[in-house]
Structures are given as C-alpha cells and as structure tokens.
Design a protein around this nucleic acid. Structure first.
Length: 476
RNA sequence: CGGGGCAUGGCGCAGUCCGGCUAGCGCACCUGCUUUGGGAGCAGGGGGCCGCAGGUUCAAAUCCUGCUGCCCCGACCA
C-alpha cells in the first residue's frame, strides 16, 4: 500500500476515492460502474444493516425476498414508474441460449413485482396492513458512477407496505423516515435534515417523498434515505383491492422506503480527514485495535499476557476488537494503517507499558495519546465508545449548522451556494421557479424540513408570502 | 451523451515528443540475517505478448489507422 491519500483541500473527489481504496472498503469491478465491496467495507455494511433491521422489526416489519427479474409488462403498468426507471434499466433478452419471448428487467427497485404479489395476497381489510421489507441488490444503469455513492449495482433494503387507509399509510411513511433519521444520527453519527421533497424531486409514482439530507465535508448534500407515501397509485396500476369493513371494494394505500450502501459513502464524506476514514464506534468493524509491541521473545510473552487479559475484559464488555500482532509490519506502519481504516480507538501495549502496568491509548478523532493504568483500560474503552460516537455527531452537526445559512434573497442564495453550503430560506415558488434556480446555481431544494421555527416570511425568489423554509444545496 | 485524462510486472509511475542495444524506478512479493514505541535496514532473488487489431520500417512501448476498457469533469439519478 502506498502512503497517504490526496488531501481534501487539494482534490476532494480524489481524496474520497483514495480513502475508499486505501482503507480497503471497495475496489472497482470489471464492468463499468460496478463495485467490489471488500471484507472491511462489507463489515461496515453488516453493522448498518443489523442496526436498521432491528429497527424495522421493532416497528412491526418482516423480511422477505422477491425475484430480481421483472417481466417487461410489469414495468409498463405504472406510467410514471416506467418513465422514471425504464431508461436506466439493464434488460435480459436471452436465457438458456435462446431469445426470450418477453424481455426481463433486472430490478431497479421492486415495486412492480411486489405489488403483483400483493394482489394475490390481499383480499380483505383483515390482510392489512402488510409490512414487508427486503434486503436486496438492484441495478440502475447510471451515466456517471462513484464508489458507494452511485454504482450500477448496489445493495439496499426496500420496505413496501400496504394499508387500508390513507392516514395509516401516511403515518407509516412518516414513521419510517424517522427510523432513517435515527439510523443516520444515532448509528452513523450523521446529522440530517428531514422533510418532504418538492414535486420536482419526488420519486416517480409517489404522492409524497420524505428524505433525510446530510451535509458532507465538502458542503454538498447527500440524500441518505427516502420514504414514500404512494397513495393508491401502485394499487391502481396493479389492481390491488380489498374488501373493507363495510363490504366495499377499495384500493389499498401504499408506502415504500429505502436506504442503500450509499450510506457508507455518507459515512466517509461526513467524518473522514486527511489521514483517512473515521468510523463511528457503532458501525466500526473494530471499535478498538490493539497493537502489541515487543523486542525479543521474552518481552513478547509479557506483552501478550497483558493483551489477553485486556481482550478477555473487552469480550465481556461486548467491545469489537482486533489484535494486530502481525510480526512483519512495524508498529508505525500499523498506526498509519488503522488510522486510514478509521478504527475509533487504538491501544498500544509494549514492554515499557508492561513495566509500568499501563497502556497507551489514542483516539482516531483526536490528536495525542493517553497513558492510563492497565486496570482502567477496559473501562475507558467502554466509555469512549459512547463518547466518540456522541462527539462525532456533535462535530458533524456543528459543521453542518455553521454552513447552513439563512437567506432572504435570491442574491444571498447564490452567494451561499457559490461559497459552498446549504442555503435555507422562505419558499413559495413552483416547479418552474425551482428549475430556474437549479439551472442558474446548480442547487436544488433538498427538502422542506419538518423543523420550521422561523414563522412566516417572504419567498426568497418571488417575494410572495411564504410560511415554509426550504433548504437549497448542490448535491451528490 | 458532450469535454478531458489514462492504459507499460500485483499496485503506483518513468520511458513515447525526437524509433535503436538486455524496458527502468518506487512500493509490494520470495530467501537469509539484523530489527518492532509513528510507514525498519542490508544482501540476494522472482515476476513484462508495453490494452487489442492492423499498418509504416532493417528495427516499434515509441510513428500512423481503427477498436476497446477504465477514471475524472458536466447533463440524469439512491
């Protein structure tokens, strides 16, 4: 491995790719836009997945799996949906050496195939709500790809729920965007703005799209998760009706919601620095990396005894740890390596420490080293896991808040966008006005945040009375 | 799809403008000895259809033509 990464200040895009590759998160696949998620990166995904999955189950959802091949006819059933997705689909035309009668789309998302199944499963209000999630891969033939942030194939989860009333479905969509907020903020330590998208930005076929929007270290926005209230659009397209309590046939109300491996990109772009990745303890494959140091076999025995004592304690405390006792690499090399890989805590134990009955502890998110009595090491790690998690979030939030600027006029908005950052201001414009801003500034409305504390004002573009603040930013 | 860049041992590059001897460097790898507290040292060693296909030439990594792939920057998107 070559030393270091491109500095963020020199070339942020290059820095990002360098970190992904040098921290061994992912590598390019042989097909354009595809990505090999390497074990270290996949382990982060597993941690995110497990945290999310627990939350989904706590809110009453179950997992299932639907096929990745979608008959072309299914794709064409929902007009907006086909318009939105067909151009970016990979299509299988041959199978078993023969041309297929009907081309098969590789799912870009699973609404169509899931709703075709729901049609069979739903007959009565007693069958509702249906609360299903699936963990899957999807394929979207994007023009421009970037590791984790936008790849041709990516991993995600997609929840698809069916309800007997609009109110219940709307509540579900809101509940799930809040689950995503918690996932981003409490697990990934990424602060997010939460709220509906404008009509121009919403999902093809949705009535309302809610999103969580995060600010990356280059002050650009990343849409980190979405939850859609689909109304009866998909039910109508797939003819999914149920008999309600009054014996009347009705179309069901639907939601869908998803987060993807993009979250890993968000993690890198939210917390990383010029030394590499910085991982929040909750998703770090190893919360603490222990580096034993010795000179000669005698010293080794003494050091390793201490290491085993410490790891036994960490095990009891449920801390994920790794002992890097590779004898080929020098301690210095390992320090750099684990800084690149973003391990939150590093502990060094060498002969000097054995002698003084201490350990040396370094935090990835802070400069300097702590020297502490051996007996306190386990407890200190246990505490730091929470402290680092919290401080990473607070730092990211401070950065975001400092770079979210209230604007009154279009001129001010332009200035904020030019300098990099989020502009928030009163908005009463329509889709056309939004497009004008996008064309002129490259910024889009990321969301209309739920959190509206500023009362009423005048639309920054039109000057018309407005009662909502919108957030504008350039985005990934 | 428009603009730019790159393609040479596993990785990163030099060499290409101006054709010429055995294609070179750093890292990684193998062997041995010495070394572990911020990217260890010395000695020895292995590994190349120079992206692909044509052409020019006594001679091509180098010149010409065509193709392919990937990356970066825009328009589209999680």
């Amino acid at each position: 491995m070559t030393k270091g990464v491109t500095k963020q200040s020199v070339d942020f895009a290059k820095w990002y790719t360098d970190v992904v590759k040098k921290a061994e998160l992912a590598d390019y696949g042989p097909v354009k836009g595809t990505m090999i998620i390497r074990p270290y990166g996949y382990s982060i995904w597993e941690n995110i997945k497990s945290a999310a999955d627990t939350m989904f189950k706590e809110t009453g959802h179950v997992n299932a799996y639907f096929p990745m091949f979608i008959p072309e006819s299914f794709m064409k059933k929902e007009a907006q949906h086909v318009e939105g997705f067909a151009p970016e689909c990979a299509v299988v035309t041959h199978g078993g050496g023969k041309k297929l009668d009907e081309p098969l789309y590789i799912r870009p998302t699973s609404e169509t195939i899931i709703w075709a199944a729901y049609k069979k499963w739903i007959n009565s209000y007693r069958d509702l709500p249906l609360l299903i999630n699936q963990w899957a891969n999807v394929v979207r033939w994007e023009m421009r790809t970037r590791l984790f942030l936008r790849t041709t194939e990516f991993l995600w989860q997609e929840g698809h729920t069916a309800h007997s009333t609009a109110k219940e479905a709307e509540e579900e969509a809101l509940q799930m965007i809040d689950v995503y907020r918690k996932l981003a903020e409490d697990v990934l330590a990424i602060p997010v703005y939460v709220g509906p998208k404008t009509d121009a930005e919403k999902f093809a076929g949705a009535v309302t799209t809610y999103a969580i929007e995060a600010m990356m270290k280059d002050k650009k926005a990343l849409q980190a998760g979405t939850s859609h209230y689909l109304g009866q659009n998909f039910a109508k397209a797939f003819d999914v009706t149920f008999l309600n309590q009054n014996n009347v046939q009705e179309y069901v109300y639907a939601t869908s919601w998803g987060v993807s491996t993009r979250l890993i990109g968000g993690l890198i772009l939210s917390h990383g620095d010029d030394k590499g990745l910085i991982l929040p303890p909750k998703v770090a494959p190893f919360q603490v990396v222990i580096i034993p140091i010795w000179r000669g076999d005698e010293a080794k025995t003494g050091v390793m005894e201490k290491v085993e004592q410490l790891t036994a304690e960490l095990k009891v405390k449920n801390i994920r740890f790794f002992v890097d006792d590779n004898e080929q690499m020098s301690p210095g090399w390992k320090f750099h390596q684990w800084e690149m890989k973003g391990a939150p805590i590093r502990i060094e134990i060498g002969p000097k420490d054995v002698e003084k009955n201490q350990v040396v502890l370094a935090r990835r998110d802070k400069q300097g080293k702590e020297f502490l009595p051996f007996e306190k090491a386990g407890q200190r790690v246990f505490e730091l896991v929470d402290i680092i998690q919290k401080e990473l979030f607070e730092n990211a939030k401070k950065f975001r808040d400092e770079n979210t600027i209230h604007v009154e006029t279009y001129e001010e908005l332009k200035k904020v966008i030019d300098n990099g950052g989020f502009a928030k201001g009163f908005w009463a414009g329509d889709g056309e006005a939004e497009e004008k801003i996008q064309k002129e500034t490259k910024a889009t409305i990321r969301c209309i945040p739920f959190d509206q504390k500023d009362g009423k004002g005048k639309c920054l573009l039109t000057g018309k009375p407005a009662d909502k603040i919108a957030i504008f930013a350039k985005s990934y």
